[in-house]
Design a protein around this nucleic acid. Structure first.
Lengths: 225, 225
DNA sequence: GAGTGGTCTAGACCACACG
DNA sequence: GTGTGGTCTAGACCACTCG
């Protein structure tokens, strides 16, 4: 039954009961005090274990309502927001970088709701893997940040990750067909299907940046489950 | 410097110092005992707060090495793996579903490393939003699961989420150009760029399913940051 | 070897939500 | 009102890892 009982043991035992349908979907499971008594540990240990399972979507907890096994477990996928250069290196390829453009320009109207109207710094750059185009970075950046910083050696992506912290952001994947410009810069046939990632980040003081990363054909973004 | 100090207060204060560069990237921060003394709370409370920040990528902790502010914070994006029907409903559209095919067939060779050779149940179905094609579900399913279950009313997606638990899985986004078959079934021009999601899930007992969801043109998958 | 985070305990009080 | 999870405390021991 019990013995050496760490919170991970409690978590594993609970997970076992969930998977074995001993605690079936919709069921209310015993309360923390009862489990602590049964497993021979402190209530805080049970709490730690069940909180962990709740965060992972395996349980639903409510004060007074008790802890239940959800009817449809909501699993979460996570992926790390990394520096592109490191992404490329992690694939065993040699990263490269080329700045294509950098200058103040009026923000396109579709982005006004996210960034506001006023002009912003518009940066375009190409990331390379083993000399081949890897992804195109198309960024609008709040000009108050990174004043005097040139992005010809280090990408805006990398500089921002290390120098500006944000409080909020959103991120979206979609697919884009290569127009003539994209096809030329990514060295692919026009019409190719390209995985694209849009990201907006904000700080308390205001918008930081909007960026679109258009990946070369065939690119996959993998996530843990 | 004390007062009402819950673990969230400790977390917020730490986050403030990180953002204000009081604790700069690369710095080692005071140890738990020191912070507990400074903030007037128990060490366990500080531990809870710092552990939370470490999970979010704002700190790096190592025994004996202490706690440091990472040079390049690794933020994680998360999105929920939901039931497609609920996804559609959440967008305020009316979900629809049509089973296109269901039968045993040999697994395509590229999937052998993931599913093994033997024949599996091949299911194709179309999900609709307000009568328009929303996404195409192309699935290979371990025939030992869901024996006798027909997927003409409820999708395999929804049935599996509610009835089979998995221990491991991977997930990947990419982009696909619509071939003739896809174009016809998704009612879009051939060559359209389509956001695609591949997912594999396994249990301790063996592979469960491989599924590819091909979304209609323009679809975006959003994630929290 | 020794410093630091990781965890457990036993008890206590609080906050919330259900009846 | 009352039961349940959420959290705090003070102390203790352990595990990992750096020097």
């Amino acid at each position: 039954m019990s013995g050496a009982t760490g919170w991970q043991d409690v978590r594993d035992e609970a997970l076992r009961r969930i998977r074995a349908r001993i605690w079936a979907p919709g069921d209310r499971i015993p309360d923390e005090a009862a489990l602590a008594a049964e497993l021979g540990c402190a209530r805080a240990t049970v709490n730690r274990a069940l909180r962990d399972l709740a965060e992972a979507g395996h349980l639903e907890r409510r004060r007074k309502g008790g802890t239940r096994v959800p009817l449809t477990p909501v699993r979460k996928a996570t992926f790390a927001i990394a520096i592109i250069r490191q992404d490329i290196a992690a694939r065993g390829q040699r990263p490269g970088y080329r700045l294509l453009g950098d200058g103040l320009a009026p923000v396109p109207e579709p982005l006004w709701p996210l960034l506001g109207p006023g002009p912003m710094r518009h940066i375009t750059a190409l990331h390379l893997a083993d000399e081949a185009p890897f992804c195109l970075e198309d960024r609008w950046l709040n000009p108050a940040l990174a004043e005097g910083v040139a992005f010809d050696r280090i990408s805006a992506n990398e500089w921002l990750v290390g120098n500006v912290s944000f409080t909020e952001g959103t991120l979206a994947f979609h697919a884009l067909a290569a127009d003539a410009g994209l096809a030329q810069r990514l060295a692919c046939p026009p019409g190719s299907a390209l995985l694209t990632l849009d990201r907006v980040t904000r700080a308390e003081t205001g918008p930081i940046t909007w960026v679109r990363l258009v990946y070369a054909p065939g690119h996959r973004v993998e996530a843990g489950l």
